[in-house]
């Protein structure tokens, strides 16, 4: 049981910058070393975990934990995936609060802020390719972005409308 916690704590710790970097690491640990599941099975779990809402690392750890030891296993794995980053970020948030008005720290972050904006802009183009955006559905991301940016619609409503819209279009209009 503790092994489950430790394994996912390790996987959680090595995910720097984004969830998908950890897929090879999960495969190596869970399939090759511990042999908790087969590679084919893991690929299925990953596909489902990716299409579900929420944090990918948590989704996949709950899946594997539940398979191994039912509810206690799922709890252990989720805790393992979340706890290390929780502790690190909490320490940083507390630390940063005391130093953010320091002129050196402020000028460093004035340089970092434009970089962060660019780092968020890049996946837009990557995801446009992987989610098969074409001339017929390109209005969906454009209208969604404009509604959030200019009118201040919450992305939560955009997601709800998009889900209902996709269903209605395929099943009622076609």
């Amino acid at each position: 049981m503790f092994e489950l916690f430790l394994t996912f704590a390790k996987i959680g710790l090595f995910t720097i910058g984004g969830g998908y970097a950890m897929i090879p690491l999960i495969k190596e640990t869970v399939v090759d070393k511990k042999q908790w599941t087969t590679e084919e099975d893991l690929m299925d779990l990953i596909a489902v975990a990716q299409s579900c809402p929420g944090v990918f690392a948590i989704n996949i750890s709950v899946f594997i934990g539940y398979r191994m030891r039912r509810l206690p296993g799922a709890l252990m794995c989720a805790l393992g995936a979340a706890l290390p980053s929780f502790i690190i970020i909490l320490a940083i948030a507390m630390f940063f609060r005391q130093f953010k008005d320091n002129p050196t720290v402020a000028s460093i972050f004035r340089g970092i802020r434009p970089a962060v904006v660019a780092l968020i802009a890049v996946p837009v183009f990557k995801m446009a390719r992987t989610s098969k955006i074409n001339i017929y559905n390109s209005w969906i991301p454009i209208v969604s972005a404009l509604c959030i940016w200019l009118i201040g619609v919450s992305p939560i409503y955009i997601i709800l409308i998009a889900a209902i819209g996709g269903y209605t279009y395929r099943h009622l209009l076609k």
Binding site: V116, S131, P141, S144, A145, C147, I158, I164, G166, H171
Partner: peptide, 24 residues
């Protein structure tokens, strides 16, 4: 049903991220 829902969700998520960048 799941596939039809995702045909709407996937493009909208691209818009969400674009909006996050614009708002910044």
């Amino acid at each position: 049903i799941v596939e039809s829902i995702f045909s709407g969700l996937r493009p909208a998520v691209v818009g969400l991220i674009a909006a996050a960048a614009l708002l910044l």
